[in-house]
Simulated assay, not measured.
Amino acid sequence: MPLPENADESHFVGALFGEALQVVPAETVDLVVSATAEIVIEGHIALDEQVMEGPMNEYPGYNAFDASPKPLFPVSAVTYRDDAILPVVAAGPPVEEDHTGTMHVAEILYQLRDAGLPVASTWFSYESAPHWLIVSVRAEWHETLNIHSGELARRIGDIVFTGKAGFGVPKVLLVEDDIDITDVNEVVWAFATRAHPEQGEVHFPAKPTAALSVYLDEQEQHTYRAGKVIYNCLLAELFPPDKRPVKGTFENGWPADIQRRVLSNWRPHGYR
């Protein structure tokens, strides 16, 4: 989780839990560690000795081929509780346990709202190996801001693509809040049916980026700079409020009395 510079991580954890994190002195280094840790590995990072590391797969979900020299970490002590649990994640195609980002989207949500934008929610599509950040805005955004969707996308991108929380975000899908952004099926449906093939993209060239996406060329990987994009799936400015497309669902497509009759007979007709 991206914390402010010089913030103490243990203090932040304590704030989340509402109580102080209990710590104890380490055995061989001048640090304190969590008193309830499963395993504590102590040592020092060598300044003048390197060993080859890798290859290791990463969160985009592809096999890695290259190893590289990294500073050696001589271990001076290992302590652990009885029956300690060692969490291990082997990165692969989504969804895997390394496809995280919930704390990042929480930070991005805070930043967007702090900028006065009518953002309803944010979410990483874990099925996209988080390459898709989904941002939903309130349905009345057009009346509230009185700007076109391209300008709204530009404002969102200028915040998301310049902060630490959005460093690893290459693509944003921008939708209204009638879409459940935690449901990948609804997200795919919105992207496919609402983003205009020509006017539906807002590009941000040469933004800071993580270097692990497989489509990046060698220069982009080494400079940590690459183009990013927002896919504009907003509809509000295209229709008057009473003519905007509505999901063709059971709730929206049938009179209330028919809905009641169907639901009351659902189980008697043998459906779950």
Rank of each mutant, 00 (worst) to 15 (best):
G101R: 02
V89K: 03
T100H: 06
A84S: 10
V88A: 04
G157K: 07
E96G: 15
P94G: 00
F161Q: 03
P71N: 04
H142E: 07
D158E: 13
P170W: 00
V137L: 03
P55G: 08
A77P: 10
A106D: 15
L133M: 04
Y126R: 11
S68T: 12
Y80N: 01
L109R: 12
A77E: 10
N57R: 14
P170M: 02
A77W: 15
S136R: 04
E97V: 01
E127R: 05
I134W: 01
E127Q: 07
A67Q: 11
N57W: 01
N146K: 14
E107P: 00
A91V: 02
T162Q: 06
R81H: 08
A90I: 09
K70N: 11
F161T: 02
V137R: 00
Q111I: 02
W141F: 03
G92D: 03
A64I: 04
D82A: 13
D114C: 09
Y126G: 02
A106G: 13
K171A: 06
N63E: 15
A120R: 02
E58A: 04
L117R: 12
A153W: 06
T122A: 10
G116C: 13
M56F: 14
Q111E: 15
Q111Y: 08
L152Y: 08
F73C: 04
Y126H: 02
P55R: 10
G166D: 09
S76D: 10
L152F: 10
A84K: 03
T162W: 07
P55K: 10
A139F: 06
P87Q: 11
N57G: 11
P60A: 14
V89Q: 02
V160P: 08
